[in-house]
Deep mutational scan, measured.
Amino acid sequence: MRKLSDELLIESYFKATEMNLNRDFIELIENEIKRRSLGHIISV
């Protein structure tokens, strides 16, 4: 996760939620978004 750019991480989050991927996977992405202080972009 740390090698993904912020932009790609956010894009991955939206794609994963759109495709209804595994909730655990989405939570991993959400946690990384929060760690990077980007939660305001997706309202996490």
Rank of each mutant, 00 (worst) to 15 (best):
M1L: 15
M1H: 04
M1N: 03
M1V: 15
M1D: 02
M1E: 02
M1I: 15
M1T: 04
M1S: 02
R2L: 14
R2C: 09
R2Y: 12
R2S: 15
R2I: 10
R2D: 11
R2Q: 15
R2M: 15
R2W: 13
K3P: 03
K3M: 10
K3H: 14
K3W: 11
K3C: 10
K3F: 10
K3E: 15
L4K: 03
L4Q: 04
L4V: 05
L4W: 15
L4S: 03
L4R: 02
L4F: 09
L4Y: 09
L4H: 03
L4E: 02
L4C: 07
L4M: 14
L4N: 02
L4A: 04
S5N: 05
S5W: 03
S5I: 05
S5L: 04
S5T: 11
S5R: 04
S5Q: 03
S5K: 04
S5Y: 03
D6C: 06
D6Q: 04
D6W: 07
D6S: 05
D6Y: 08
D6L: 07
D6E: 04
D6T: 09
D6M: 05
D6H: 04
D6F: 06
E7T: 09
E7F: 11
E7C: 09
E7Y: 11
E7N: 08
E7L: 10
E7P: 06
E7V: 10
E7K: 13
E7Q: 12
E7A: 13
L8M: 12
L8A: 15
L8C: 13
L8W: 09
L8E: 15
L8Y: 08
L8R: 11
L8H: 10
L9H: 00
L9Q: 01
L9T: 00
L9R: 01
L9F: 02
L9I: 04
L9W: 01
L9G: 01
I10F: 05
I10W: 05
I10R: 03
I10S: 02
I10G: 01
I10V: 07
E11H: 12
E11W: 15
E11V: 11
E11P: 01
E11I: 13
E11Q: 14
E11F: 14
E11Y: 15
E11A: 15
E11N: 08
E11C: 15
S12V: 15
S12I: 15
S12M: 15
S12P: 00
S12Q: 14
S12R: 07
S12Y: 15
S12G: 06
S12W: 15
S12E: 12
S12A: 15
S12F: 15
Y13F: 09
Y13Q: 01
Y13K: 01
Y13E: 00
Y13A: 01
Y13M: 02
Y13H: 02
Y13G: 00
Y13P: 00
F14E: 04
F14C: 07
F14D: 03
F14Q: 06
F14T: 06
F14R: 12
F14M: 10
K15P: 00
K15S: 08
K15C: 13
K15H: 13
K15G: 05
K15W: 15
K15T: 08
K15Y: 14
K15I: 11
K15D: 04
K15L: 13
A16C: 06
A16I: 05
A16S: 06
A16N: 03
A16W: 08
A16L: 05
A16M: 05
A16G: 04
A16Y: 07
A16E: 04
A16K: 03
A16D: 01
T17V: 15
T17L: 13
T17H: 14
T17G: 06
T17I: 15
E18P: 02
E18V: 08
E18S: 13
E18F: 09
E18A: 15
E18L: 11
E18T: 07
E18R: 12
M19H: 07
M19V: 05
M19N: 08
M19A: 09
M19K: 06
M19T: 05
M19R: 05
M19Y: 07
M19P: 02
N20M: 10
N20Y: 07
N20V: 06
N20H: 10
N20A: 10
N20C: 08
N20Q: 11
N20W: 07
N20E: 07
L21K: 07
L21M: 12
L21R: 07
L21S: 09
L21P: 03
L21D: 06
L21E: 07
L21I: 08
L21N: 06
L21Y: 11
L21G: 06
L21H: 06
N22Y: 06
N22F: 07
N22E: 11
N22K: 08
N22M: 08
N22S: 13
N22T: 10
N22L: 07
N22Q: 10
R23S: 09
R23V: 07
R23P: 10
R23C: 05
R23E: 05
R23I: 08
R23H: 10
D24M: 10
D24E: 13
D24G: 10
D24L: 10
D24Y: 11
D24W: 15
D24C: 10
F25L: 13
F25T: 07
F25S: 05
F25Q: 07
F25C: 12
F25N: 04
F25V: 09
F25G: 03
F25W: 14
I26Y: 03
I26T: 03
I26A: 03
I26E: 01
I26S: 02
I26L: 08
I26G: 01
I26F: 04
E27I: 13
E27P: 02
E27V: 12
E27N: 10
E27L: 13
E27F: 10
E27K: 12
E27S: 11
E27Q: 12
E27C: 09
L28H: 05
L28F: 05
L28G: 04
L28M: 13
L28E: 08
L28P: 04
L28T: 07
L28V: 10
L28I: 11
I29V: 05
I29Q: 01
I29K: 00
I29M: 09
I29P: 00
I29Y: 08
I29D: 00
I29H: 03
E30W: 15
E30A: 12
E30C: 11
E30R: 13
E30Y: 14
E30M: 15
E30H: 08
E30S: 09
E30P: 00
E30K: 13
E30V: 15
N31Q: 14
N31M: 13
N31F: 12
N31I: 11
N31R: 12
N31A: 14
N31P: 01
N31T: 12
N31D: 09
N31S: 11
N31V: 10
E32D: 01
E32T: 01
E32K: 00
E32Y: 02
E32M: 02
E32W: 02
E32P: 00
E32S: 01
E32F: 03
E32N: 01
E32C: 02
E32H: 02
E32A: 02
I33A: 02
I33S: 00
I33N: 00
I33H: 00
I33L: 15
I33R: 00
I33P: 00
K34P: 00
K34S: 06
K34H: 11
K34M: 12
K34C: 07
K34F: 14
K34E: 07
K34Q: 09
K34G: 04
K34N: 10
K34W: 13
K34V: 08
R35H: 04
R35P: 00
R35N: 05
R35C: 03
R35D: 03
R35E: 03
R35A: 06
R35Q: 04
R35G: 03
R35S: 05
R36A: 00
R36F: 02
R36Q: 00
R36V: 01
R36C: 00
R36K: 00
R36E: 00
R36D: 00
R36H: 01
R36Y: 01
R36P: 00
R36N: 00
R36I: 01
R36G: 00
R36L: 02
S37Y: 11
S37H: 13
S37T: 07
S37W: 08
S37I: 05
S37M: 13
S37Q: 12
S37L: 13
S37R: 14
L38D: 01
L38V: 02
L38T: 01
L38K: 02
L38Y: 03
L38I: 05
L38N: 01
L38F: 04
L38W: 02
L38S: 01
L38A: 02
G39D: 11
G39L: 13
G39R: 06
G39W: 15
G39C: 15
G39M: 14
G39V: 09
G39N: 10
G39S: 14
G39H: 12
G39P: 05
G39K: 08
G39T: 14
H40P: 05
H40D: 06
H40Y: 12
H40M: 07
H40G: 07
H40N: 08
I41K: 09
I41E: 06
I41W: 11
I41G: 03
I41F: 12
I41P: 04
I41T: 06
I41N: 06
I42S: 04
I42F: 03
I42V: 08
I42K: 04
I42W: 02
I42D: 03
I42M: 05
I42R: 04
S43N: 13
S43G: 14
S43K: 13
S43V: 12
S43C: 09
S43P: 11
S43R: 12
S43E: 13
S43F: 08
V44E: 13
V44W: 14
V44L: 14
V44M: 14
V44H: 13
V44P: 11
V44R: 12
V44N: 14
V44C: 08
V44K: 13
